[in-house]
Amino acid sequence: MLLQLKNIFKWVNSGGQRIFLLKDVNLEVSEGEFISIMGPSGSGKSTLLNVIGMLDGFDEGEYHFLDESVHSLKEKHRSNLYKEYIGFVFQSYHLLDDLTVKENLEMPLLYKKYGSSERKAKVADMLDRFNIVGKKDLFPAQLSGGQQQLVGIARALISNPKLILADEPTGNLNSKQGEEIMELFKKLNDEGVTIIQVTHSEKNAAYGSRIINLLDGRMV
């Protein structure tokens, strides 16, 4: 088992009232799964994804990732954990505008202190795999949305994470580009990468092996 959420609660206090963002969420994810989280706006999809990605905390409950108890880990340890095992893909790609495609791909490796030659090999491999070798020296602004998202995914994958978290990865793309991205996810999943995506679209959700529906922070 890759991760397990047990009775997760998350809330904010607003005007003396407690508003629940997540309410008693229980979830087990095994390696190799492809999960789609669905639900209306404000149902807590992204919050759940951020909690899984350890970018956001929670107020109650237990979270086990591999053999670690995330809820009892220190901030630093926690961030080491997600750096090691999780890759993020965002709706608006979030590439660094001042870096080229190649340099954007290289960045996670720099933070992991890979040597120069190893970085080069990995970047070249990734460029090759995603068929964007010709674009390696372009800046994000010179790419189409679909291509940018491709780079975003490549960047998420470059340090071999066990889990990819994608927050509406096709939200800013047209339907054709979206389809290509979903096909890619499918392919990655087949190769063994675990994927959790948040989506509004039934069609995209269908790519997954399991669908989780959220309503007002509760799994239904």
């Binding site: 630093k76 961030s79 750096k83 993020f88 979030h94 660094l96 960045m107 933070y111 960047r155």
Partner: peptide
């Protein structure tokens, strides 16, 4: 700020 966010998610820590 955006750059900071991205760098943090791809693995930078505060000191870096």
């Amino acid at each position: 700020a955006k750059e900071v966010g991205i760098r943090k998610t791809v693995g930078s820590n505060k000191n870096q």
